[in-house]
């Protein structure tokens, strides 16, 4: 049975260990119609598109984490639309592991109430499998970023996803071309990335559909029981690649993006219209990046993407500027 989730802070290992398929929900190619009866047009098209998809598809339940203001309200809206939901209060301020462990314990109870069985052994196996998937995706992306694969990997069983990535690693070749850093929230359309490749870029990303799905700093301990496995998850997710919906000590999010940009000639902010957290960061990040001598472009998207040709023109123009 599928459990849908939208945010990469969702502890998919727990969902998996309870015997469900964690399935990342994205906007699709279909136009957004039914969702418009539930939420205003100034909600981002990822939220509206996901709701549209959820209304059509068969899920057992949906799990939300409070990230942005839209996701905060979306849980209730999904519930009003007749869906089974749970929201995990992932803290906005990164740091308090104890608090989040308590929240995860409550989530374990919810999974049990949904008929899932969470125990130490099953959770350890799920933790191991997801780490394997994440490390393999990291390897694949270091050779040749493959968005079709990473997006697919988020919607199939983790074992199958590992096999898929293994297969892709075998054929992957590193290509040296001017690098572009694509930063933003989600973009579940592989054709968009292809435009960058076609224009002669090699891609590095800071995207929630790309590297932010698999970039983690893993905790330095081996869990001994269920409680410490939950602590492991809490620490793992607090140390995941930083996201603009979270507040970090220092300016970890900016530092992270700036570091990624170091060896890139250009930075593209590929932002979904109405994605407030990213749009708040954009002006100040842009200023620093330009100070570093990077070419910066803002590309605003709405899902489904209808004007690929317009996007191609912008990307090609950027490629020419770099030459």
């Amino acid at each position: 049975m599928k459990i849908g989730y939208l945010c990469t802070f969702t502890p998919k290992e727990l969902i998996h260990s309870a015997g469900f398929l964690p399935f990342r929900v994205f906007a699709t190619d279909k136009p957004i119609n039914r969702a418009s009866a539930y939420i205003q047009s100034y909600a981002c098209s990822q939220a509206r598109g996901s709701l549209e998809f959820a209304l059509e598809d068969d899920f057992y339940a949906f799990v939300f984490t409070r990230c942005c203001d839209t996701l905060m309200r979306l849980t209730d809206i999904f519930e009003f639309a007749g869906k089974r939901v749970h929201n995990i209060e992932f803290p906005t301020k990164i740091g308090n592991v104890e608090y989040y462990v308590r929240e995860l314990k409550d989530f374990v109870e919810v999974l049990r109430a949904w008929g899932g069985e969470v125990n130490y052994e099953s959770l350890m196996e799920s933790l191991r499998l997801y780490r394997e998937l994440e490390e393999k995706l990291k390897l694949l992306f270091s050779l040749s970023p493959d968005y079709e694969t990473v997006i697919k990997a988020q919607q199939i069983d983790v074992r199958k996803a590992i096999e898929l990535v293994d297969e892709k690693i075998r054929d992957a070749k590193r290509v040296e071309k001017p690098k572009v850093l694509i930063t933003g929230s989600v973009c579940p359309y592989p054709e968009v990335y292809k435009i960058f490749i076609d224009a002669g870029f090699s891609i590095k990303d800071d995207l929630c559909t790309g590297s932010r799905f698999f970039e983690y700093k893993y905790p330095n301990f081996e869990p001994k029981d269920l409680d410490s496995a939950l602590r492991y998850i809490a620490e793992k997710y607090m140390n995941k690649s930083p996201c603009p919906t979270k507040h970090y000590e220092g300016d970890r999010r900016f530092e992270y993006v700036l570091k990624l940009a170091e060896d890139c000639s250009a930075v593209v902010f590929l932002l979904v219209k109405f994605c407030d957290p990213h749009f708040f960061d954009y002006p100040q990040l842009k200023e620093i990046l330009e100070g570093m001598g990077k070419k910066v472009a803002l590309i605003e998207l709405e899902f489904p993407v209808v004007s690929l040709e317009q996007l191609r023109t912008r990307v090609e123009a950027l490629r020419e500027v770099i030459e």
Binding site: C68, T92, K93
Partner: peptide
């Protein structure tokens, strides 16, 4: 009241170069 204020105040914190304290309230659904 919203998570927007966190982003807004992060912007201010960079402009003024002053410390920011975020009081993080769990959303009580």
């Amino acid at each position: 009241i919203c998570n927007t204020v966190v982003k807004w105040y992060e912007v201010l914190s960079r402009i003024f170069k002053v410390p920011l304290f975020v009081l993080d309230m769990p959303f009580i659904r």
